[in-house]
């Protein structure tokens, strides 16, 4: 639901890079989005296209890499992938789990021509 405001933050950051680095065009923006962020990739794509229309980013592709949820057990230090959001250690069954991945909402890199 707030994908539009996320899209506009992305655009803002990218335009700053364009200005600071004197870039001519940005061909790609690559994002990392954690599976627990509730951000819907399709909606983000849609929002990005909608707000970049008629701007210098109109032809820029948005690439979204979904990061799966990973946890680290506070009891036995076991690292594991969290399936179906079950935060229970497969090694010792503890439910005291620190999340190590899945909350990402970041711009990884852009591809640009100067």
């Amino acid at each position: 639901m707030h994908e539009l405001s996320i899209a506009s933050s992305i655009v803002k950051t990218v335009l700053e890079e364009v200005k600071n680095r004197n870039l001519k065009t940005v061909t790609l923006v690559s994002m990392r989005i954690g599976a627990l962020t509730d951000v819907v990739p399709d909606s983000l794509q849609f929002g990005f296209e909608a707000i970049t229309k008629d701007t210098i980013l109109a032809k820029t592709d948005l690439h979204i890499e979904t990061i799966s949820v990973k946890g680290c057990c506070n009891n036995c230090q076991h690292n594991f992938e969290v399936f179906e959001f079950v935060f229970i250690c497969p090694n010792c069954e503890s439910n005291d789990i620190k999340m190590s991945h899945g909350n990402e909402l970041e711009i990884a890199y852009i591809e640009a021509e100067d």
């Binding site: 996320i6 933050s9 992305i10 950051t13 890079e17 680095r21 061909t27 790609l28 994002m31 909402l105 970041e106 711009i107 990884a108 890199y109 852009i110 591809e111 640009a112 021509e113 100067d114």
Partner: peptide, 15 residues
């Protein structure tokens, strides 16, 4: 060939 530029920035970093 376009250049790849690492950004590594959180989208909601301002917030």
């Amino acid at each position: 060939m376009p250049d790849k530029i690492a950004i590594e920035k959180k989208v909601l970093s301002e917030n």
